[in-house]
Write a protein that binds this DNA or RNA. Structure first.
Lengths: 151, 151
DNA sequence: ATCGCTGCAAACCCTTTGCAGCGCA
DNA sequence: TGCGCTGCAAAGGGTTTGCAGCGAT
């Protein structure tokens, strides 16, 4: 019931769930858990490749699928066709995504406390372990676009 | 300054902005504005194709780019690699996206009033015309997954 | 010795882009 | 008439899948 996931604990759980513990899996597991926040498949691939050059993207994707199903990571698609993976115990902030320039700004978690409670009570939706992804227009783009007409 | 966008008004604005009014553009414009909420490129393509079989996806994508830049639609990537387009005057609700089953539930807009105000004041971020996309776990999946171990 | 897992390559899906011709202004 | 726009086809980029062989249990 601890809130800190270690490679050892996760590995044991995986084994108990019937998954095999392969070197690749352990390396990918270590890579994602050591992430401060979120990682992409490519980052995991590069990270593992430095120690194990034979690794393939298929294994990264399939392993992340396992880790997600096992409950150790969540995956979030913020758009742009690049999925991000998060250790479930490290979801401490969220994202403001500008639709104009693609800029992603981080927002602290506290601002969502009230909303999260409402969502849970009214919709039964548990947003606790994930990122909020809020689309809109950032300050810079709003100012720029109000000055530049087409042509 | 009206909050209702019609094909006629939009067409005139586009022309004033220096864009050409082609039949394809007008058909796509009509298709997206007639949408109750959001449409995908494919839905627009199929809609227009029924009247103008020669239409191409390139034209749909490029037209939506124009309409976005002109301020008549917003585009949101909720993940899954499929962009959704919205008439700016019809963004009346938002989405709860379940990371496990992909189910998308709608949430009314009012629940976000306080949050939106905070985001604007503290981050200068304008989320007024867009969708919120909130990732998490829906009630059904939370209940199901607490009963089914792997294997 | 199983059979789950891996690596490779190819397939997929949506979106973007190059290019030659068309047609709006 | 000029050049912005279109359609076609091909390319792109991230992710998924089929398959044969490998290796954790």
């Amino acid at each position: 019931m601890s809130d800190t996931i270690t490679v050892e604990k996760a590995a044991q759980s995986l084994q108990e769930m019937g998954y095999r513990l392969t070197p690749q899996r352990l390396m990918i597991l270590e890579a994602v858990l050591s992430s401060e926040d979120h990682v992409t498949a490519e980052e995991l691939y590069e990270h593992v490749k430095s120690r194990y050059p034979h690794i393939s993207f298929s294994t990264v994707y399939r392993t992340m699928e396992v880790l997600r199903d096992a409950g150790f990571v969540t995956q979030t698609d913020l758009g742009g066709g690049r999925v991000q993976y998060h250790p479930v115990d490290k979801a401490k902030h969220h994202h403001l995504i500008c639709q104009s320039c693609g800029h992603v700004e981080e927002v602290s978690d506290e601002i969502f406390a009230g909303l999260r409670k409402d969502l849970h009570q009214k919709y039964g939706f548990d947003a606790l372990l994930t990122h909020f992804a809020i689309f809109g227009r950032c300050r810079v783009c709003r100012e720029r676009e109000s000055r530049q007409p087409h042509r």
